[in-house]
Each structure stands twice: as C-alpha cells, then as structure tokens.
Design a protein around this nucleic acid. Sequence first.
DNA 1: TTTGTAAATGCAATACTTTGCATATTATAC
DNA 2: GTATAATATGCAAAGTATTGCATTTACAAA
Lengths: 127, 127
Amino acid sequence: MRASSITNEIFKILNEQDDHLTAKEIYEKVKVTLSAVDQSTVYRALERMVHHGKASVSDMGGPAVVYQLVSQKPHHHLVCEKCGKQLTFKDGQVADFLEAVQKKTNFKITTNHLILFGICPECQKKK
Amino acid sequence: MRASSITNEIFKILNEQDDHLTAKEIYEKVKVTLSAVDQSTVYRALERMVHHGKASVSDMGGPAVVYQLVSQKPHHHLVCEKCGKQLTFKDGQVADFLEAVQKKTNFKITTNHLILFGICPECQKKK
DNA sequence: TTTGTAAATGCAATACTTTGCATATTATAC
DNA sequence: GTATAATATGCAAAGTATTGCATTTACAAA
C-alpha cells in the first residue's frame, strides 16, 4: 500500500475518532479537508486499508458497516437487537477463545473486533 | 409478524438453499415465482425476519451481507481474508464461549452464525 | 361475518456503494 | 534525475439498498 493524501487523512480521522465510523461518515469528514475528493476514492481507500490489514470493518447491526483502525486496542461488542444498546467488553475471554480457534484450525485469526448480538436484560424483561 | 406470500416464499427459498444468500439473490429467486414483487418488499421482508429472529444476517466479507434461517443448525465460519476460502466449524467450542459471555453479561445471545476472519495456512506460506 | 387496526405491499424517488476507464501520481530500478 | 511499472485518483455511469407515502391485505375482536 502506497502513501497517499487520502489514506493519510483517513488514518487521522479514524485515529482521532474513538467511535467507529461508516464509509459515508468518513467520506464527509475527508471532504472537510480535501474538498475535491471523490466518494469512490474514499470507498476504495477504505477497501484497500482493510485488505492490507490496516483497518477492519464490522457490521454492528446499524445502517451500514463501520470502520476502525486495527492499531486500536482489540475490543468487542455485544449489541442488543431490540434497543440497539452496545456493550463493550474487554479482550480477555475473547482472546482466549480466538487463540483456541487459531490453534485448532491453523488459521491466523485477524478478527480483532468481534460483534455479538443478543437481547439485553432490560429488553428481555419487556418481552 | 404476519404470514404473507413473500415471507413464505423467502422461507422456502432459504430452506431449500443450503448456502447463504444475499438480499439480491433472494429477490431474484422470489421474482421467479412472484414476478410482480418489488425489491423494496423483499428487502423489507428480510429486515423483518431478522428483527423477529426468524432469520439472521452475516457479513462474510463478500460483496453483500447474506441471510439464513435461524432454524438451521448453528454453525460458524472462518473466512480467509486473502483467498476467500471458507471453513465451517462445528458448534461445540463456540457454544461454550457464547454460553460464557451470556452468563457474564446477562444478555441472551442470539448470534448463531459467527464469522471469524483470518488467514489460512496456505496464504500464510505464500506471504 | 363484518369491521377496525396494524402490518405488508407497490411505486417512485432517493440514498448509498461500486465499477470502468482514462489520467495522474508514487515508488523503484536504471 | 529519468524511465518504467504499479498504484491511486477523478469522473461518469451503473448497481444495490432504503425511504415516504398511499393503498391493500391479514388478523383479531366484536
């Protein structure tokens, strides 16, 4: 992967942002600095970053998938299917699990942002 | 959720199909039987089925997310990020892991089709 | 049955994402 | 520094997915 102004800009944006962003949100933010940039360029840059293992992409059940840098500390989410509430959980037990899968399959696991879906305690009560 | 010809048709399609299908593929198949159906109806029906826990949706790294019935036996995949090869693995260890998360968080986990990404042994060698 | 209500549908318009191709830029070898 | 090849970009067009709103349909209650 080659250095380019757009890729650099995306790095900066994803780094400053603590949240995960959709492609479109990233495009909007890139445009603030580089007003002439085309949307396809941003979409392709993101694709490239994912392919090169610089960024990862997750479907958190929202309207679109979200991106984050892999350099960020591995962390995982539990998303409530009913109310959308998101719980972030620490890496410990997930890491153990992934480690086990890795040993068993000989794949090198790259997933570093696992999303699980469920129903939160509150929504279970509401039934 | 109410019975409707389109939902029934989708059930049938997903049931017959052993694979996972994208929304568009499902739309194409529905059209064979119900030629007048609008795409938005199919997309909304799928959305509804997911929301009601009848179907689940997964991002397998392909061009679009794929759908499957939750009635199908829980199974999970490991997808190679380089060559796209897919490994299906049995439920055992994943079930244990999900059970543990469930206990710890009090969420009722609904994820029954987990997708992990990694790099397969062959692609690791190729480097 | 008939009727009332909520859910599902179709249509048209919009929003979002991807693609093909020509051009421009960057890195590497010379 | 210059040439070469590979990568990245912009533009326009196409493909895919979503939304608003009026209408129809299915279900349940009377």
